[in-house]
Computed example of a mutant assay.
Amino acid sequence: MTSRVTFVSPAMNRSVREARFDDGSPLDAGGAARARSAAGTLSAADRVLVSPTVRCRETASALGLVAVEAPELGGMDMGRWRGRTLGEVSAEEPDQVAHWLADPAAALHGGESVRALCERVGRWLEATAQTDGRTLVVVEPEIVRATVVRVLAAHEATFWRLDVPPLTATEISGRSGRWNLRLGQTLGAREPEGGH
Rank of each mutant, 00 (worst) to 15 (best):
A102G: 14
A102W: 11
D103A: 06
D103M: 01
P104K: 13
A105Y: 03
A106G: 03
A107W: 01
A107F: 04
L108Y: 00
G110P: 01
G110H: 04
G111A: 07
G111C: 06
S113C: 13
S113Y: 08
A116S: 09
A116L: 12
L117D: 08
L117E: 09
C118D: 10
C118P: 12
C118T: 12
R120L: 02
R120P: 06
R120K: 02
V121G: 07
V121Y: 01
G122K: 11
G122F: 11
R123T: 01
R123D: 02
R123K: 05
W124D: 02
E126G: 14
E126T: 11
E126D: 14
E126H: 13
E126I: 07
E126K: 12
A129L: 02
Q130F: 00
Q130S: 01
Q130A: 11
T131H: 15
D132W: 03
G133I: 12
R134M: 11
R134N: 13
T135W: 01
L136K: 00
L136P: 09
V137D: 04
V137Q: 05
V137T: 10
V138Q: 04
V139R: 00
V139H: 00
V139S: 08
E140P: 03
E142W: 04
E142M: 09
E142T: 07
I143G: 00
V144M: 07
R145P: 02
R145N: 08
A146S: 12
A146G: 08
T147Y: 06
T147N: 08
T147D: 04
V148S: 10
V148R: 15
V148P: 10
V148I: 15
V148E: 14
V149F: 03
R150F: 03
R150W: 05
V151S: 06
V151T: 05
V151N: 07
L152S: 12
L152A: 15
L152G: 13
A153E: 15
A153S: 14
A153V: 07
A153M: 10
A154Y: 10
A154L: 15
A154R: 09
E156L: 04
A157W: 11
A157P: 05
A157N: 13
F159S: 09
F159Q: 05
W160Q: 09
W160L: 12
R161S: 15
R161M: 14
R161C: 14
L162Q: 14
L162K: 10
L162A: 09
L162I: 15
D163N: 11
V164L: 06
V164Q: 06
V164D: 11
P166Q: 11
P166V: 13
P166L: 02
L167S: 05
T168I: 03
A169W: 00
A169L: 03
A169V: 02
A169Q: 05
T170M: 04
T170G: 01
E171R: 15
E171M: 15
I172L: 06
S173I: 02
S173D: 10
